[in-house]
């Protein structure tokens, strides 16, 4: 895994840059800039209510829970509804605890592969991860490579996210601003804003849920400690 700066043999680099610079010497008359007072998106007044509403629009499932025990029960319920088979879990203390609490019925007999053991298997029935933030404006979850890797949110037919209400941000701009402020890409090679289950409308513009990625995206959203 290279992390050192690399040299690429680039015979045309200077030529392309030269052409760009030559082109940019042409003066172009431009219209005036945007009036800064205009508001593009309606401000989000109640992030939780908005997030839940957008989840419905995005065909996601969002279960609001009061505490860890309720979240564990919710997780058990989701897992019970799935066919037998391995699940992939981000190796994080909070998720280890949640799995332990959900235990018995749902998890027993189901092999668990932790992200510390590598990528999720192609045949995984579900993946369970955390998220960096939840975005109210668009009903989205932001995951990074730290949330179990890249495949954790796309390989299995069901992706379950365990999140806390405190992770809600009002809009996309705030979420993207946080990526910049926290220098997320200094530590992660990947981030993704996910807004619903995988889908396509390539045949007669008819919406089909569950294309190459998960058919179900479940957010277990906990409000208490």
């Amino acid at each position: 895994m290279p992390t050192e700066k690399v040299q690429t043999d680039n015979p045309s680099r200077e030529r392309v840059l030269g052409r760009i610079r030559a082109g940019l010497r042409t003066a172009v008359v431009e219209p005036t800039a945007l009036d800064r007072g205009r508001v593009i998106f309606e401000p989000v007044s109640d992030p939780l209510e908005r997030f839940q509403r957008e989840c419905v629009a995005n065909l996601m499932e969002c279960a609001l829970t009061v505490d860890c025990a309720a979240s564990a029960r919710e997780l058990a319920q989701v897992l019970q509804s799935l066919p037998a088979g391995e699940i992939f879990v981000q190796d994080d203390p909070s998720l280890r605890r949640l799995i332990e609490m959900a235990a018995s019925a749902a998890v027993s007999g189901r092999p668990i592969r932790w992200s510390s053991q590598g990528a999720p298997a192609e045949a995984s029935q579900a993946t369970l991860t955390l998220a960096e933030v939840l975005i109210a404006q668009t009903g989205s979850v932001l995951v990074t490579a730290a949330c179990g890797g890249r495949g954790a949110s796309v390989v299995a037919p069901c992706h379950i996210i365990y999140a806390h209400v405190a992770q809600l941000v009002p809009n996309l701009a705030t979420a993207l601003g946080r990526i910049s402020q926290q220098r997320i890409f200094d530590h992660n090679s990947f981030a993704c804003v996910i807004s619903g289950s995988s889908r396509t409308a390539d045949i007669e513009k008819i919406l089909v849920q569950g294309a190459h990625g998960p058919r179900r995206l479940v957010v277990i959203l906990q409000s208490g400690s």
């Binding site: 895994m1 999720p120 490579a145 996309l172 990947f190 990625g213």
Partner: peptide, 28 residues
């Protein structure tokens, strides 16, 4: 497509980093 936002807005900054569970080893 008329969607409010596309399902996956993916951001990739390089090859898989040390400690990451998966991802390509080469990024061009």
């Amino acid at each position: 497509t008329g969607q409010g936002i596309t399902t996956y807005g993916t951001l990739i900054g390089g090859p898989r980093r040390r400690g990451e569970a998966d991802g390509p080893e080469e990024f061009h």
